[in-house]
Write a protein that binds this DNA or RNA. Structure first.
Length: 854
RNA sequence: GGGCGGUUAGCUCAGCGGUUAGAGCAUCCCGCUUACACCGGGAAGGUCCAGUGUUCAAAUCACUGACCGCCCACCA
C-alpha cells in the first residue's frame, strides 16, 4: 500500500469535509430510535468571520458530538447564526459610511436590504469556515434568528408574555447610547473606572441670609435639571433646612429641600442634588416626592432648550462651561479628584446617558424564580460548578429587561398604534383595523427587539416551535450547551427563563463553560492588540487537525486556553508522526501473517483498552486536555516508541499492529477527524462508511492483560537502563555491547524470553545470572534486577552514583521515620502502611546494590 | 462594595489528601538506526506565593495576607 512520505493535510482535509456533508454523515433523523444527544450551536453573529474563540468552542463541541455519534447515539448538532441586531447594524452602517453614505439617508427599507446582503455573505463565510474546521453539524437544520419560523416564535412569545402581563410598555429611566441612538439593557452597559472629579457646588438657602448648602457631583452639567436637593431625614446637621427651599445657581430656580434616603450622611457633605431626568437614583427619589423631571440632555447627547444658556451644547462641552460659570460666580467651592465608574455602551464605547424614555420591558422576577429553581435542584448542571454562584447572583438580583431598541435590523415589535384613538394593539399578525375604534390608520411600532430576545428562544425556536414538531419532541430539551462565560447572563440565563416558560422544561441539561483563548503572553486576543490568530490562516499552515489538537491540549475546564505557534507546530508534528506510523504499517502489512499474539501485542491491546477507559471518561467530563494528552501519549510514546520498534525486530504479525492502529484511530477521531478519516479510509478493513460512524472503543475487562503489561515493563526497563548506561559512559550508540542481567527467577525468565528483541533495540547481547550483581562500573539496579554492561572500568560516573545513593538514603530515612511513628501506624489505612513497608524494603535492597557495586 | 479564578520546572499549564510532584515547548549532550530530522536516544531543571491551622499524612483541605486577572454593583 502506498502512502506519501510527508503529511500534507491540505491535500485531504477539504475533501473529507465536503464528503461528510455530501454523504449526510451528520444528519440526525427525528424518527430514529435509541438514545438521543442534541446540542444547539451558540449562533455566531453575522458580523463577519469566525475567530479562534469560535474555533475552540466548535472544536470542543465537535469532540463531544463525534464521541456521542460514535457511541451510537442519535446525535444532533444544530448549526445557525444570529442576526446580532446592534452589532451587525453598526458594521453595515460603518461600511456605508466608508462609501460616503449616511445609513439614515438611505431609509429603513434600503438599509435593511443592504444588511441582508451583508448577512448572506457573512453567513456563507461562517458556514464555509465551519465546514472547513470539521464541525459535524446537521446542515439540513441550519437556522438564522430572522428566519420566518424563528420570527414567528418571537411574536408568539412576545404576545403571550404581554397577555400574561410579563411584558409591559412604559416611561422609565433607561440607558441610552447617544452614538447608537438606542436604548440599551443594563447588560449592554460596561462599567469602567475612570479618573474624574467631584465638584462641590454651593446652593444658597432661601430665607436664610448667607446660608448655603454644598452638594457634590460628578456631573455638574446635570444640575441644570435639578429639581430638588436631598438630605437624609436622620441627618441632624441639617434640621434647620427642613421645609426650606434653595436657589439653583445658573438657572435661578427655586427648588425644595427634600428629606430622602438617597442622601447618605456619610458621603461628601451629606447633601445631594436631585436630577430626576438624568440619574436613576434621582428618578426614584423624584417619584417619591413628586418632583418635576426636567430633561436637559437629549438623545444626541446635546443640551436641550431647558438648559437655558447652555442649550445646544454637547454634554461634555456643557460640563466645561457649567464648571467655568460656577467658578466665575463663586458657587464652586472645591474640586476633588475622584475615580468614578463610568457606564459605557458595550458596542460604541460612548458614555451612556440615563434618560427617561418610553420602552418595552420584560418583567423578569417571575421568570427568574423558576430559573433559579432548576439550577438549585440540579435539573441544569453547570460545569465547572462554580458558575452556579455567578448565575444565581445575577438571577437573585435581576431587574426588568428593556427589550426595545431604536434600530432597524431585527425583529419588529409586534405592536400597532392607532393613529385615531392612540390604542396600542399587540398581536401575532398585523391587525386589519384598530380593535377599539375600527380605524385602519395603524402603524407598527418602529422599534425592534433586543437581539437576545430571539437568541433566548434558540433551543426551541430552531426545532420548529410553536409548531408541535417531531424535532421538538425528539431533541428538546437539548442535552448540552457549550458556551463562553461572557454570555452567561445575556444568553444562557434568558434561554433558561424562556425555555421553562414556553416549553415547560429546561432548554439543556448541562452547561459547559469554556475559557478564553489567549496568546503566548496570556493576553486576550483582540484586533487592536494585533495578536489575533485567524483560524483560516493557521488551519492552512498547520492543518485543521493540528490546530484542533493544539486547542484541546489547553482546554482544561475552568482555565483559559493559551494558543501559540509552538503548540500548533508540535501538534502538527504529532499528526505527522501518526501519518508516518501508518505509512510504515502499510508498507509491512500482509507480510508473514498468521503469527500468534506476542507479549507486545497483548501489551498494546491491554494499553489500548486502558486508554479507551480513560478517554471515554475524560470526554464525558469535558476534560478535553486530558483526552488530548491520553491519545497523544499513547500514539507517540507507546505505540510508536515501543510497540512499532518491537514489531520491527519480530517476524511478521503485522495484522495485530494494524488492528491496534485502527482502534487507536477511532480513539483519536473526535480530536483529529480528518487525519483519522484519511487513514481509516485507506485501511478500509471495515464495512462502515466513515470512521465518524464507527464504534468508539470501550473498556472491556476481558481485554485487560496485567501480566503482559508487567512483562513488557521489564523489557522496557532493561532497554532504558542499557541506553542510560551507554550515554552515561559516552559510548557509541551503534556499538554492540555485552551485558548481564542479575536477578530472581521470574524477572530473569522474562528477560531471557525477550533477549533477542532487547539485543536489537538496545544493542546489548545479554547473558543471565541468578542472584546479586558483583561490583561493576556500569551498573543500574531496579528492585527486580541489576543490569551490568561490560565496558571499561574507568567509564563510570561516581558523582552521579553518589547522588543516587544520597537520594535513596533520604527515602529510607523518611520511610523509617514514618514507620516508627505509632500514630501513623494506628491511624493510616493498612494499604498505605503496607505499601510503605514494601517500598522501604526495595529502597534498602537498592542501597545495598548501589553500595556494593561502588 | 460584593463575588469568582489564579500564583507548581526557563515558558504555557496539568495534578487538588497518601510511593522519589508530571506533560508539551524551550535548554544541554549523543545519533541522518532502512515510518517519521515535523525524527530517535539520554540528561539537566521545582524550599508547589507567604504564614497559620486541620490531619498519622498537605502542592492538594481551612483560615489570613500579598500579588495578578476577571465578573457583578444606582452611593452623588
Amino acid at each position: 500500500m502506498q502512502i506519501e512520505k510527508v503529511y500534507e493535510p491540505q491535500r485531504f482535509e477539504p475533501h473529507w469535509a465536503q464528503w461528510w456533508i455530501d454523504s449526510n454523515i451528520f444528519g440526525a433523523p427525528a424518527d430514529a430510535p435509541g438514545r438521543v444527544f442534541s446540542l444547539v450551536i451558540p449562533p455566531p453573529n453575522v458580523t463577519g468571520v469566525l475567530h479562534i474563540g469560535h474555533m475552540l468552542e466548535h472544536t470542543e463541541i465537535d469532540v463531544t458530538i463525534r464521541w456521542h455519534r460514535m457511541l451510537g447515539d442519535n446525535t444532533l448538532w444544530l448549526p445557525g447564526t444570529d442576526h446580532a441586531g446592534i452589532a451587525t447594524q453598526m458594521v453595515v452602517a460603518r461600511q456605508l459610511a466608508e462609501e460616503g453614505i449616511n445609513y439614515r439617508d438611505l431609509g429603513r427599507e434600503k438599509f435593511e436590504e443592504r444588511v441582508w446582503q451583508w448577512k448572506e455573505r457573512s453567513g456563507d463565510t461562517i458556514k464555509r469556515q465551519m465546514i472547513r474546521l470539521g464541525a459535524s453539524c446537521d446542515w439540513t437544520r441550519e437556522r438564522f434568528t430572522l428566519d420566518p419560523g424563528l420570527s414567528r416564535a418571537v411574536r408568539e412569545v412576545f404576545v403571550t408574555l404581554f397577555e400574561k402581563g410579563l411584558i409591559y410598555r412604559g416611561e422609565y429611566m433607561i440607558n441610552w447610547c447617544p452614538d447608537c441612538m438606542t436604548a440599551l439593557s443594563d447588560l449592554e452597559v460596561a462599567h469602567e473606572e475612570v479618573p474624574g472629579h467631584l465638584w462641590h457646588v454651593r446652593y444658597p438657602v432661601n430665607g436664610l441670609p448667607d446660608t448655603y448648602v454644598t452638594v457634590a457631583t460628578t456631573r455638574p452639567e446635570t444640575m441644570l435639571g435639578d429639581t430638588a436637593v436631598a438630605i437624609n431625614p436622620k441627618d441632624t446637621r441639617y434640621t434647620h433646612l427642613h421645609g426650606r427651599t434653595v436657589q439653583l445657581p445658573l438657572m435661578d430656580r427655586e427648588i425644595p429641600v427634600i428629606l430622602d434616603e438617597v442622601a447618605d450622611p456619610e458621603f461628601g457633605t451629606g447633601v445631594v442634588k436631585v436630577t430626576p431626568a438624568h440619574d436613576a437614583n434621582d428618578f426614584e427619589a423624584g417619584k417619591r416626592h413628586n418632583l418635576p423631571k426636567i430633561q436637559v440632555i437629549d438623545e444626541h447627547g446635546n443640551m436641550t432648550a431647558a438648559a437655558g444658556a447652555f442649550a445646544g451644547l454637547d454634554r461634555f462641552e456643557a460640563r466645561r462651561r457649567v464648571v467655568a460659570r460656577l467658578q466665575e460666580t463663586g458657587a464652586l467651592v472645591k474640586i476633588e479628584d475622584y475615580k468614578l465608574n463610568l457606564g459605557k455602551c458595550q458596542r460604541s464605547k460612548t458614555p451612556v446617558e440615563p434618560l427617561i424614555s418610553t420602552q418595552w420591558f420584560v418583567k423578569t422576577k417571575p421568570l427568574a424564580e423558576k430559573a433559579i429553581e432548576v439550577v438549585e435542584n440540579g435539573r441544569i448542571q453547570f460545569v465547572p460548578p462554580n458558575w452556579v454562584k455567578t448565575y444565581n447572583e445575577w438571577m437573585y438580583n435581576i431587574r426588568d429587561w428593556c427589550i426595545s431598541r431604536q434600530l432597524w435590523w431585527g425583529h419588529r415589535i409586534p405592536a400597532w398604534y392607532c393613529g385615531n384613538c392612540k390604542q396600542i394593539t399587540v398581536a401575532r399578525e398585523a391587525p386589519a383595523a384598530c380593535p377599539k375604534c375600527g380605524s385602519t390608520d395603524l402603524k407598527q411600532d418602529p422599534d425592534v427587539l433586543d437581539t437576545w430576545f430571539s437568541s433566548g428562544l434558540w433551543p426551541f425556536s430552531t426545532l420548529g416551535w410553536p409548531e408541535k414538531t417531531a424535532d421538538l419532541a425528539k431533541f428538546y430539551p437539548t442535552s448540552l450547551l457549550i458556551t463562553g462565560f461572557d454570555i452567561l447572563f445575556f444568553w444562557v440565563a434568558r434561554m433558561v427563563m424562556f425555555g421553562l416558560e414556553f416549553m415547560g422544561d429546561v432548554p439543556f441539561r448541562q452547561v459547559y463553560i469554556h475559557g478564553l483563548v489567549r496568546d503566548a503572553e496570556r493576553q486576550k486576543m483582540s484586533k487592536t492588540r494585533g495578536n489575533v490568530i485567524d483560524p483560516l490562516v493557521v488551519t492552512e499552515k498547520y492543518g485543521t487537525d493540528a490546530v484542533r489538537m493544539a486547542l484541546l491540549q489547553g482546554a482544561a475546564p475552568g482555565t483559559d486556553i493559551v494558543l501559540t505557534e509552538e503548540r500548533m507546530e508540535s501538534a502538527r508534528a504529532f499528526a505527522n508522526k501518526i501519518w508516518n506510523a501508518a505509512r510504515f504499517l502499510f508498507m509491512n502489512v500482509g507480510q508473514a501473517s498468521g503469527v500468534p499474539l506476542q507479549t507486545e501485542d497483548r501489551w498494546i491491546f491491554s494499553r489500548l483498552n486502558a486508554v479507551a477507559a480513560d478517554a471515554n471518561r475524560a470526554i464525558e467530563q469535558y476534560r478535553y486536555h486530558e483526552y488530548a494528552q491520553l491519545v497523544w501519549h499513547f500514539f507517540w510514546h507507546e505505540f510508536c516508541d515501543w510497540y512499532i520498534e518491537l514489531k520491527k525486530v519480530r517476524a511478521g504479525g503485522w495484522e495485530h499492529a494494524v488492528a491496534a492502529f485502527e482502534t487507536a484511530l477511532r480513539l483519536l477521531h473526535p480530536a483529529m477527524p480528518f487525519l483519522t478519516e484519511e487513514l481509516w479510509q485507506r485501511l478500509r478493513q471495515n464495512s462502515t462508511k466513515s470512521i465518524a460512524l464507527a464504534a468508539y472503543p470501550q473498556f472491556r475487562p476481558d481485554l485487560a492483560e496485567p501480566e503482559a503489561e508487567k512483562e513488557f515493563a521489564i523489557v522496557q526497563e532493561i532497554v532504558t537502563l542499557a541506553r542510560t548506561l551507554r550515554t552515561e559512559n559516552k559510548l557509541d550508540p551503534k556499538q554492540q555491547l555485552n551485558g548481564t542481567v542479575y536477578g530472581h527467577t521470574a524477572a530473569l525468565e522474562i528477560a531471557r524470553c525477550h533477549a533477542d528483541a532487547i539485543q536489537k533495540i538496545a544493542r546489548v547481547n545479554l547473558t543471565f545470572q541468578q542472584g546479586a550483581a558483583p561490583k561493576a562500573a556500569a551498573i543500574r539496579s531496579t528492585p527486580e534486577f541489576d543490569l551490568v554492561l561490560d565496558v571499561p572500568v574507568t567509564a563510570g560516573d561516581p558523582a552521579r552514583r553518589q547522588k543516587e545513593i544520597d537520594q535513596v538514603k533520604k527515602n529510607i530515612a523518611s520511610h523509617e521515620r514514618q514507620l516508627s511513628d505509632e500514630t501513623f501506624l494506628s491511624k493510616a489505612p493498612a494499604k498505605v502502611i503496607e505499601g510503605m513497608r514494601a517500598k522501604l524494603t526495595e529502597y534498602k535492597a537498592q542501597l545495598r546494590k548501589l553500595e556494593e557495586s561502588q
